[in-house]
Design a protein around this nucleic acid. Structure first.
Lengths: 331, 331
DNA sequence: TGTTTTTGATAAAACCTTTTATCTCCTATA
DNA sequence: TATAGGAGATAAAAGGTTTTATCAAAAACA
């Protein structure tokens, strides 16, 4: 069962095999201090032959940097978190830093448990993510002694947060519709108590002018459907374009319009928000929508926490990252 | 900026404050060795007051157990991985074990990088997950020296894997339709080169009898739609129930049926597979479907890797976990 | 009273690195 | 030739914990 080379090689093994002291081996491998080029090469070669890899625990214990960071999320479903986590991890892995993922399920007890575990492991920093930008983060995060970055979540005043630029996203959606020559644009979106919904609606109103009309509701397909029913049961001019607050709402809108024999995009153009591909690629026609670039958000959050963990200073405040428009068939 | 209690307390601080030696403090805190009940209490109280938490790096270095495990996944989208990861983490956190999440993006270079990082960190074990059960895992996993569990992925012969029980899932779907009195059941599913699709189809055929018919295609809504077009363009008796290989396919099927004025579930009952709520809750009517219990799968994988990391023996082989039927309106 | 156990506590080693302070040659300078 | 300086290597300390071996004192025994 256990092979002879079962045990891991230590730097002591390397030193002995190369016929040098432990300190020389360390210096050679790290290219630090004064070492003869020849011995340096030899040590490196021997280390390679032995398959030596330094023990991150021992190194972290000494250097006070564990090269690990924790990601605390309250989202189990994964629509937002995993793309961001993948982005974070993608950046970190190139810097030799690993990522602890902690799903708190919105349970404060679990959050505390995870947070303590992260601190015990001496993580170099923490990224907190939520599923909306206007929820208070766990108060324990405030007085931590290690850097914290907020991604897709609200941080305290002197912290660094990364959000999608909801206003800009709404603007490029409306501008795209303007480019298509549409002028009677309707905005059907989710719950008004979501900050993101309000920001997008405000940006929409600025561009849409006096004819602009916002319908708040729920974040569901159902609501998109019933909103269309309402619109078409009223008299008066009908919209020639609809900007939806989510892809799910857009899907309901598209289905309801098709039921009524309205042609998309000829009669009514539709733009969604999220670029959640399971939805946006499957509507008929496929949905033109706004992508929040979650992976890029993860990249930026990862770079930020790396910087902070190296004691670099970062301008506090909310960084809003641009969204992009993904053109498919619906507009 | 830096408060006086900025630095973390060590066991040395506890020992000094309690007026005992380091070894006594350690023994008392861990309830090990011979310690007077009185001193034990005192040490614990002092540790509590000081907010002492042991350094996991130092502990891991000595005990050879890092109390961390790694999860290697090739899925960035998150539909399967995050629910499983949440299940794994839920189990682990209660045992004081943390989870490194490594998304490899199906990139062998990245997989190697992550794997090396995990080994450097002395993880106690690795869980490998894929998005289908019949892909070869990275060969590096085989000769690792630490335990590996395969979840939703194929492992080598002598390994422990956890899969959803696709056959049982298909059976309860068909049985449910039988219970509703349906006898002409059709199976519309995804690509035949997926093992899961073949297993489900075989189980379906056993129960459906000679009238059973399987249509393989793609894992898309589009395919569900066109499959229905095919069925209804042919002459002959029409099915009174359809068992679909995924929720997305089921959605296409439902939409196509509705377009044709077929009533669901009265004329045709529809059952899906996945219980991917963004789809299954949004169809009209909402979709009756099979849930693969991914979180439970994560639980089991977590328990298994915990066991292995404690050198407990586990029966090698594939453990198939039962699926459940979620009844909504479509059947 | 003298000897053996038992109890409770401790010093020190160990885990694997990195880093600081030393030490030994060798070469260049005066 | 004697000395300073530099190159290259090393011993030892440090980091925070667990564990083994040791030790002193108190309790039990003869």
């Amino acid at each position: 069962m256990s092979s002879p080379d079962d045990k891991r090689r230590t730097i002591r093994d390397v030193a002995k095999a190369a016929g040098v002291s432990i300190s020389t081996a360390s210096n050679a491998l790290n290219g630090i201090g004064r070492t003869n080029a020849e011995t340096r090469e030899k040590v490196k070669r021997v280390a390679d032959e032995l398959g030596f890899r330094p023990n991150a625990l021992a190194r972290g214990l000494l250097t006070k940097r564990s090269h690990a960071i924790g990601m605390l999320t309250n989202d189990t479903y994964g629509r937002l978190t995993l793309p961001m986590a993948a982005g974070v991890s993608e950046i970190l892995v190139d810097h030799g830093v690993s990522l602890f993922l902690c799903a708190t399920n919105n349970d404060p007890r679990l959050a505390k448990l995870h947070l303590d575990a992260l601190l015990d492991r001496q993580v170099d920093g923490i990224i907190f993510t939520a599923t909306r930008i206007d929820l208070e983060p766990p108060p324990e995060l405030l007085k931590l002694g290690i850097p914290v970055i907020y991604a897709f979540a609200q941080g305290p005043a002197d912290s660094v947060s990364f959000h999608p630029d909801d206003a800009q996203g709404a603007r490029i959606a409306v501008q795209h519709l303007h480019t298509l020559g549409r002028s009677r644009i309707l905005h059907i979106t989710g719950e008004q108590n979501y900050l993101a919904a309000r920001i997008r609606a405000d940006a929409y109103r600025e561009l849409a002018g006096p004819s602009g009309q916002v319908m708040f509701g729920e974040w569901s397909e159902e609501w998109g459907h019933s909103a269309i029913d309402t619109v078409y049961s009223q008299s008066g001019p009908k919209p020639d374009a609809i900007f939806c607050g989510s892809d799910e709402i857009a899907r309901g809108v598209i289905d309801a319009l098709r039921d009524r024999g309205v042609s998309i995009p000829d009669d009514v153009a539709v733009v969604g928000f999220d670029n959640w591909e399971v939805v946006s690629k499957q509507t008929r026609p496929p949905l033109t929508t706004i992508d929040m670039e979650l992976k890029e958000l993860g990249h930026r959050a990862g770079l930020a926490i790396l910087g902070l963990s190296r004691r670099e200073k970062l301008e506090p405040g909310i960084v809003r990252l641009p969204c992009s428009l993904v053109a498919r068939g619906s507009a």
